[in-house]
Write a protein that binds this DNA or RNA. Structure first.
Lengths: 249, 249
DNA sequence: CAATCGTATCAACGCAGGTTAGTTTGATCC
DNA sequence: GGATCAAACTAACCTGCGTTGATACGATTG
């Protein structure tokens, strides 16, 4: 089951068995990729899209001078570059962060879904718009939060997304990102991210060591990062708050 | 013709007469709105979307403490909240900046297009993904550019978009944004935006006075803001560079 | 005409985060 | 065991932007 986690826990877009099967049968290939492998380059015409099954993938804009800004991070279940289907080519690069397993879905198969299964198509559209909503939250983060807030916000978001993918219990999860990766996500230098991580640790807001994130009190961290999960369109029953509360009770 | 400017000048998604007519006939209402009028509030279920005919509209995320980050600015021809159709409700607020004229399109009409005109639907999807591509460029701006660069980048982007909408000649255009608006776009304070505007003027990069933007040398401004228009998916013949060159020859 | 309000402008000061240049830790491999 | 490398961590210094508060300008209104 390649699409098992796709749209999992999202509000109002549950896939029925039929749709699930249609998507599954659209997969033509499964690949295993090493860390830091380029999946897509900006400006190259694409006739397939990539669903992430395992590992972490990043999307980034690069000024070809060493400065790189991540614009998205993807976890298992994300349809990484589904937007390449309507767009034809991408405006940014896509690269694995960790080793990853991906499923390839040709655009010809999506074309068939477009014509024959309009309601499944709308759910695919929805998926690309969640990514856009996350972009907007990232804009808020970069534009209006200080360094502590940015990191806190990102960790809250990641926790919420991993909870809904079934990969976090609401307090702890593995996250194989380096501090340098975090700095490219949060618009900071790696040196400053290091300072921030220490402070988060000192204030008992979050401990991130050897790829393990531990959030003792998700609500406090959320407050520090002004994090409000609404933009993730997560189904009520799976919201990180309710999960965290269920555990702390 | 309400949809005259919609997707104008975009690569590979020209609307044929039939599609144009279908969209036109989906309009049920045209409204005139005053400046700073709220169009949509976050979290409210929507059964219509809004096409902008005249004026400027902004989308923003607000921390309810006075800090506001704009996540998008829309010009005539933009389908401001088309993403509300698949999403159902928005994760942010939408407000006019200037007085504006809008066309309302009910989601029921979009539903009909979804089922009956899959290829028009794909073009609508495309339109929402352009917005996402612009979000990404804004992320780069906020994450990796200094204050001068951010303002320069925004002005280049706006110039390019207005050229393709037929509202800029590539060097000059009217833009009824205040310096405070610019600060909420660029993640700066209005005081610092003022410093930046002076410096842009002193360096002959850009003069912005009483709602009129004048860019003597678009290439120089683009270099300062590391602006590359590819993400706007503008058709070759309408790219701002070629327009600017045509004029300067 | 004066009063008012939104916007632009400027100067003085402080600090968050960048820059530079390291050292330490831990994993992997010979 | 030592060698190597990536990642984490630190300190010292510097600067770009935020903050505060005041003034100027121009449009609108009474």
């Amino acid at each position: 089951m390649f699409t098992e986690r796709f749209l999992r826990g999202k509000r109002g877009v549950r896939l029925d068995d039929d749709e699930r099967a249609a998507l599954e049968s659209a997969v033509v290939e499964v690949n295993t990729l090493p860390p830091r492998a380029t999946i897509v380059r900006a400006g190259v015409k694409l006739d397939y899209s990539t669903l992430l099954i395992e590992g972490i993938v990043s999307r980034y804009i690069d000024d070809r001078r060493g400065l790189r800004q991540l614009v998205a991070v993807h976890f298992p279940g994300d349809f990484v570059d589904l937007h390449a289907f309507p767009l034809g080519e991408l405006d940014h690069d896509v690269q694995t962060v960790t080793a990853a397993k991906t499923a390839t879905i040709p655009h010809s198969a999506l074309e068939a879904i477009l014509v024959g299964r309009p309601h499944l198509m709308r759910k695919l559209w929805f998926a690309t718009l969640i990514d856009a909503a996350i972009h907007r939250a990232w804009l808020f983060r970069l534009g209006r939060l200080d360094a502590m807030g940015r990191v806190a916000h990102f960790l809250c978001e990641t926790n919420a997304r991993l909870v809904s993918a079934g990969l976090s219990d609401g307090h702890r999860f593995t996250l194989a990102l380096t501090q340098a990766d975090l700095s490219e996500i949060c618009g900071l230098t790696n040196v400053h991210v290091n300072r921030v991580m220490r402070k988060l640790r000192e204030e008992r807001l979050c401990v991130f060591r050897s790829s393990l994130v531990d959030i003792p009190d998700p609500d406090r961290l959320a407050a520090r990062g002004q994090f409000n999960p609404d933009y993730l369109y997560i189904a009520q029953s799976l919201s990180p708050v309710s999960v965290a509360n269920a555990r702390s009770r």
